Amino acid sequence: NEGVFESELFGYVKGAFTDAKEERAGRFEIASGGTMFLDEIGNLTLSMQSKLLAALQNREIFRIGSNKPVQIDIRLISATNKPLTEMIYANTFREDLLYRINTIQILLPPLRNRVEDIPLLVNHFLTMYGKKYNKHELKISNQGMDALIKYSFPGNIRELEHMVEKAVILCESGVLKQEDLFFQQRISHVFGKKSLDLEVNEKLLILEALKMNGNNYTKASFDLNISRKTLYNKIKKYGF
């Protein structure tokens, strides 16, 4: 929602809109004198791009509902996985904003091209989610680590993090094994001859997920990205 994003970025004064019960500083004000990180900048609408550009160029912002400028002094770090140069030609990203934010550019290769980072990231996520779920001193088996290193990770680090978190939740010992890991590519091309029958395809996917997970409903539901209750209802529906 553009309105919510704008209020988070620039802040607002009391009465600026229905839920504005009191004035609130935005991220720009809070970060003034320091650094602000703006993720997925390529997803901004052209309207928000214009407002961001004005704030960066003028070094001032206006809270929503106010005509009083607020001086800011920030260093902006932004990130995106979109081709901003191509978006300029498609008229979906402002060229002047790109020039403004592109002082120093760091191109981060996809995770599959820097597999040496995977063990470091895995250990970091194991520690982080081990604390979150009260499962301390977790380790990963050599086979599990090898499987991660060989995987292509189309979702990059976010996919790795999500995979490790799920494994931590379901792991019943202190060591994550290969079978505790859930690869998105594990459920693919299971149909043989293509079919456009939705129920047929859904049934095949469920059967494949159950087979791969030894009829473990919890693991199968994770692979299918549905709740355990939904999986149970579908199994009951299809009668297997």
Results as ranks from 00 to 15, higher is better:
Met87Ala: 11
Met87Asn: 11
Met87Ser: 06
Tyr89Met: 14
Ala90Ile: 05
Asn91Cys: 01
Arg94His: 06
Tyr99Cys: 12
Tyr99Gln: 08
Arg100Ser: 09
Arg100His: 12
Arg100Val: 13
Ile101Ser: 12
Asn102Ala: 15
Asn102Gly: 13
Asn102Asp: 07
Thr103Trp: 03
Ile104Ala: 10
Ile106Leu: 15
Ile106Cys: 09
Pro109Tyr: 03
Pro110Ala: 11
Arg112Asp: 03
Arg114Ala: 08
Arg114Glu: 11
Arg114Leu: 14
Arg114Gly: 10
Arg114Ser: 08
Arg114Tyr: 02
Glu116Met: 14
Asp117Arg: 00
Asp117Cys: 06
Ile118Met: 06
Pro119Val: 12
Leu121Asn: 10
Val122Asp: 04
His124Pro: 04
His124Met: 13
Leu126Thr: 02
Leu126Trp: 00
Met128Asn: 06
Met128Cys: 03
Gly130Gln: 04
Gly130Pro: 01
Asn134Phe: 03
His136Asn: 11
Glu137Pro: 02
Glu137Tyr: 10
Glu137Cys: 13
Leu138Asn: 07
Leu138His: 03
Asn142Lys: 08
Asn142Thr: 13
Gln143His: 10
Gln143Leu: 14
Gln143Cys: 07
Gln143Ala: 15
Gly144His: 02
Gly144Cys: 01
Met145Leu: 15
Ile149Cys: 05
Ile149Asp: 02
Lys150Leu: 09
Lys150Ser: 13
Tyr151Ser: 01
Ser152Ala: 08
Ser152Asp: 10
Phe153Val: 06
Phe153His: 05
Pro154Asp: 07
Asn156Phe: 07
Ile157Pro: 12
Ile157Phe: 05
Ile157Lys: 00
Arg158Glu: 14
Arg158Pro: 11
Arg158Gly: 08
Leu160Arg: 13
His162Gln: 15
His162Ala: 15
Met163Lys: 00
Val164Leu: 08
Lys166Pro: 01
Lys166Asp: 14
Val168Trp: 12
Ile169Trp: 10
Ile169Glu: 10
Leu170Asp: 04
Leu170Ile: 12
Leu170Gln: 09
Cys171Gly: 03
Cys171Asn: 15
Glu172Thr: 14
Ser173Asp: 09
Ser173Gln: 04
Lys177Ser: 07
Gln178Tyr: 07
Asp180Val: 08
Asp180Arg: 01
Asp180Ser: 02
Leu181Ile: 11
Leu181Phe: 04
Leu181Gly: 10
Phe182Ala: 13
Phe183Thr: 12
Gln184His: 10
Ile187Cys: 06
Val190Asn: 12
Val190Asp: 05
Lys193Phe: 10
Lys193Met: 12
Lys193Gly: 00
Lys194Phe: 03
Leu196His: 09
Leu196Ile: 06
Leu196Cys: 02
Asp197Gly: 00
Glu199Arg: 00
Lys203Tyr: 00
Leu204Gln: 08
Leu204Lys: 03
Leu204Ser: 06
Leu204Ala: 05
Ile206Tyr: 00
Ile206Trp: 00
Ala209Gln: 07
Met212Tyr: 02
Met212Asp: 05
Gly214Asn: 15
Gly214Phe: 03
Asn215Ala: 02
Asn215Trp: 04
Asn216Tyr: 01
Tyr217Glu: 08
Tyr217Leu: 13
Thr218Val: 14
Thr218Glu: 12
Thr218Arg: 08
Lys219Pro: 04
Lys219Asn: 02
Lys219Gln: 04
Ala220Gln: 05
Ala220Asn: 02
Ser221Asp: 01
Ser221Glu: 01
